[in-house]
Simulated scan of single mutants.
Amino acid sequence: MDFVALDFETANSSRGSVCSIGLVEYEKGKLKREYYRLVKPKQNYFASINVSIHGITKEDVADAPEFDVLWEREIRELLEGKFLVAHNAQFDMSVLRAVLDQYNLPYPMLAYNCSVNISKKTWTLPRYKLNVVSDYLGIELEHHHALDDARASAQILLKAAEELQANNVKELVEKTNTMNGMMFDTSYEPAKLNNKRRAKKQSESYVAATSEVDTTHLFYQSHIVFTGKLEAMKREEAVQRIVDRGGKLQRNVEASTNYLIVGNATFRDYMNGKRNSQIERTEMLLAEGHAIEIISESDFLKHL
């Protein structure tokens, strides 16, 4: 199990007001490192209700660096390209996006999931707050301390994997029927509880020209995504060619995608280091162990 558990505490109701961060990294199921820092918010205002929850005050962070300094020096390399987990990831990932936006910093490329969602698919409990799940699993917790919350989230992930006999993160996501969220470039997609497939919906308006399909063809029963403008034909014609060979169209790259077909101009940009969101998503899924092949328009025509 390779992952990083993350938790933020904020100084006030603004999602960008990070005042502490905790990270716990596991590699092959073993603890690799722990990271905790106090952070001085850019607008250094602490609301009394937030202080009453986590106990951090304006005085505590007086000599602490701001987030942009820590991001460049320490945090980015701990998160970039990693698989993250957080308890109520919707909050923590929105905090990360907000504080990066505040300093005009680009988003890292990463995938993440939510230990709340994973808990709901693993155990039947009255509630799924971090302290409730931790108490049920016998995890010691100093709640609302960023490092301790990150530790607890990591333990929940590991115990869910043990419960469901999942050997790695990919298997755990599949067995819990959850969907990873993603961050890339200046955009993101949220983690979801149910893994809904779109391929059938996107392909249903296309009908194969013949019932005699070559079952040995490369694209037979493959899930395919197009990106970038095609030079040789219109997108609709290309999709029809795929359907005629027993393939299925997807609008966006997913874990079930087999091939990403890239228009020649976009593919040349890719070869020169420029990636659009679909290619970035593909590379992230490849890093997670999914088998997706990136094919240029020229090679697509050869396969046809």
Rank of each mutant, 00 (worst) to 15 (best):
S52R: 14
E66F: 10
N117I: 07
S119K: 00
E171V: 09
A255R: 06
H217G: 09
E163Q: 13
D63I: 06
H290C: 10
G247P: 05
S13T: 14
L260H: 04
Q102C: 12
G246N: 10
E297Y: 09
S13W: 12
E59G: 06
L285D: 01
T10A: 03
M271E: 15
Q202M: 15
S52L: 10
I53Q: 06
I118N: 00
G228V: 05
N180C: 15
L78R: 08
K129W: 00
E254L: 12
Y112S: 02
I242E: 03
R127G: 09
L38W: 02
V85A: 03
H145R: 05
I53W: 01
T176A: 03
S256R: 11
V69F: 09
H143T: 00
F184G: 03
E9W: 01
A154C: 08
D149I: 02
E212Y: 15
G81P: 04
W123V: 02
A111R: 14
I49A: 12
S203E: 12
G228Y: 05
L23K: 02
L70N: 05
M93V: 10
H144E: 06
G273M: 08
D68A: 11
K32N: 12
E189L: 13
K159M: 02
A86F: 06
F300A: 00
N44V: 09
E72R: 13
C19S: 08
S52H: 11
L70V: 07
E34Q: 13
K248D: 09
G289H: 07
V253T: 08
F91R: 03
R15Y: 10
G263F: 01
L218G: 04
N168S: 10
L6E: 04
K170I: 09
S14H: 13
D299C: 09
S222G: 14
L301F: 09
G289L: 05
L218D: 09
L31M: 06
G29I: 07
R127W: 02
E66V: 10
A146W: 00
L105S: 06
R235W: 06
N113C: 13
E297A: 03
S52C: 07
A146K: 00
N131V: 02
Y136L: 00
E77H: 12
D135E: 13
D7T: 03
R268V: 14
R97G: 05
F3Y: 05
Y128Q: 04
I279R: 02
N264T: 11
N168V: 07
I56S: 01
N167P: 07
E34I: 06
H87V: 02
Q43H: 14
I292L: 11
E174D: 13
A199R: 14
E236A: 11
V18F: 06
Q278G: 05
D214Y: 13
Y26F: 11
N194Q: 14
F219D: 03
R97P: 02
R268E: 15
G246S: 12
K42M: 11
H217P: 02
A47D: 12
N252E: 15
A89S: 11
R281T: 07
A64P: 06
A47N: 10
Y103F: 12
S17F: 05
A98P: 00
S119I: 00
Q43K: 15
F46S: 02
A265Q: 09
T227W: 07
V24G: 01
E288A: 09
P41E: 03
S115N: 04
L78P: 02
H144C: 07
D148F: 01
